[in-house]
Amino acid sequence: MAEIEGIYTIWLREMKRFFRYRSRIVTSIVTPLLWLIIFGTGLGAAVRFGGVPGGYKAFIYPGIIGQTVLFTSIFSGVSVIIDRQYGFLKEILVAPISRESMVVGKALGISTASMIQAAILLALSFIVGITMSPQCFIVSMVIALIISMGLGGLGLVIAAFTDSMEGFNLIMSFIVLPIFLLSGALFPITGLPAWLQGAVYINPLTYAVDALRFTILRESVLPLGVNMVVITIFAVVTVLIAAFLFNRKEQNIM
């Protein structure tokens, strides 16, 4: 019982932080819209994209949802570094609840924030000319939940190894952008050169984007089931690793 209360408490704080940083919510919605409307329209006009009804804009729509979830999840996970720098992490780490509960509470908070953003984007599907059915909405939300747990866990794993926000640019360049660009969010993942193909397939976000594309556009490279299994394993593994790292890491936190 104490553990559930602990998980809830950590989740609640994550939510408070999410809703109090209004500017972050605004940017997290505006950025994907810019991608869709400007990039999607611009590139869509330049290339002939016959694959999907609705054209290139519709094609990248699931990818941009994936991108939003990616940014929010990784950065919320990495925000533990800020908690460490400003000292608040100590207050949580010395509390008499298990480190596993702390990590799960945090990961749930991260995925709730990501799902709120995904829900807003899904509700704006008319912008790219897609009508959203309730089933489609629900399945997309489930995908967002699973992949955001995994990416949030990944953010926590990164945070466990990083002591200051100086590493932030490195994280952006070497982790977040590659995951985004290699996910097939912006281009089809079939018919790529072998080296690129390999990189795309070891990227967990690829499977989430493919699953979203199937759900929203009825079009995918892999079956939905395979995609779901892969992202679920990814989520479980990263959260377990994060919990293990926070458990093991001894810090002189006074």
Binding site: G6, Y8, L12, L89, E91, P96, I253
Partner: peptide, 25 residues
């Protein structure tokens, strides 16, 4: 009580106390 601050700027004083009470059962 740690040597360096261990507070979250964006929570209120009462919320800090509520959170602590919940974490400590």
């Amino acid at each position: 009580v740690f040597q360096s601050r261990a507070l979250d700027d964006i929570l209120t004083g009462r919320e800090h106390l509520e959170m602590h009470a919940a974490l400590y059962g």
